[in-house]
Design a protein around this nucleic acid. Sequence first.
DNA 1: ATTATTTATTAAGCTTACTTAACTTTGTCT
DNA 2: AGACAAAGTTAAGTAAGCTTAATAAATAAT
Lengths: 220, 220
Amino acid sequence: MNSISVENFLKNVFTLKYDEGEKASTSNLSVRLGISGPAITDMAKKLAAKDLLIYEPYKELQLTDAGKNVAIKVIRRHRIWEMFLHQVLDLDLTEVHNEAELLEHQTSDNLLEKLDEYLNFPEFDPHGDPIPQADGSIIKHKNAIKLDQLSNGDKGTIVRLIYADEEVQQLFEHYKIETGASFKILKVFKLDKSMEVDLNGNKIHLSQTIQKRIFCKIIE
Amino acid sequence: MNSISVENFLKNVFTLKYDEGEKASTSNLSVRLGISGPAITDMAKKLAAKDLLIYEPYKELQLTDAGKNVAIKVIRRHRIWEMFLHQVLDLDLTEVHNEAELLEHQTSDNLLEKLDEYLNFPEFDPHGDPIPQADGSIIKHKNAIKLDQLSNGDKGTIVRLIYADEEVQQLFEHYKIETGASFKILKVFKLDKSMEVDLNGNKIHLSQTIQKRIFCKIIE
DNA sequence: ATTATTTATTAAGCTTACTTAACTTTGTCT
DNA sequence: AGACAAAGTTAAGTAAGCTTAATAAATAAT
């Protein structure tokens, strides 16, 4: 069995790359996992020896299929727990992530499938993140794009939010940015590509970094 | 925060002593925790340094109040999870223990109270074990005694089963020994204090060791 | 009471998952 | 191209939680 550290490592390589489009570099992982650079290099070598990823000094980490499978399973457990905690136990969106972060490493296959069944096999979690299916496949939102692709006057609804860290989470919470919310782009500033958005009647200003963490669908 | 190893250690000192009436000795703990004797001594010294228990070489371990509180909290989390897994997710009695064994270490106070509330503040788990309350108090079954106290002809119902290890668990499962079941003592053998019992129409033979793991109430 | 046996402890060593300090490689800037 | 900053790696060391082998204390048996 893989340890909690190993599971978290692989999960973060995966989400960094595939959810956020960032480089799976030593420094990015160091920040994400809250451990030192050398600890990242160390772990990368260990996991390479187990064929869970490909490590070449000074190059970006690459998950192998085996590594991807582990990552996807951890993400599945995480998102099913989030859904369960939110829908069944009524924990709010700011809490579910941290609780799921712990539970995701202590969930047997049997328990996981019971939870999935209880929830009636959901496809997306409360943040709009896709829940990897039992076979490892990941369903995508159709026609969803990141907010930074929109222009003046565009209207849409939010379908997914990327909760990378505590601060982003607080910002979403503070401005009531949540899946299902409708918005209109009021103005895009060419200077720094920030934009002003009307969200349920409130005017809010979003940097490009934040825009990239918000997936939406355009309403024609 | 206490590590998983520390939580398990304190929990087992507690249950060994207060649930099973056994000595909290190095060898008993070694068997229970599945680790070597020296590992027990090591941990005992560490926890003594943290004032969670009193360690004197060659003497039985004694939990301090602080140590008891940690143990009781872990037991509370364990039993609430068992109840939840059984009642809400429909896992069977043989599964809930092992799942709860993992989840008990990854449950925040907030989540725990949500689970407790969802279950409507139960007092006993599916094995009949008392669930320590939020204030640390432990409600006892009234007038419950262990099976080994009964005599020929006594009738009663099972209120609680002590699931010490995998084997006992299997035995309970195999003979359909479960809380709520009615029984009658057919014969007590003086030789080894074993007894023959009629349980829901089946004749079963129980050693004294097993009798001590079954709590019941007499029906007059 | 002495011996034998069980039980517990000490000693030495291992793995995992980290740390900081020093050094090396890579990429950028002029 | 050379210098420099940023990013990554190597080296050495730590703490937790284990292990086995050897030793000592407590308990039971004769």
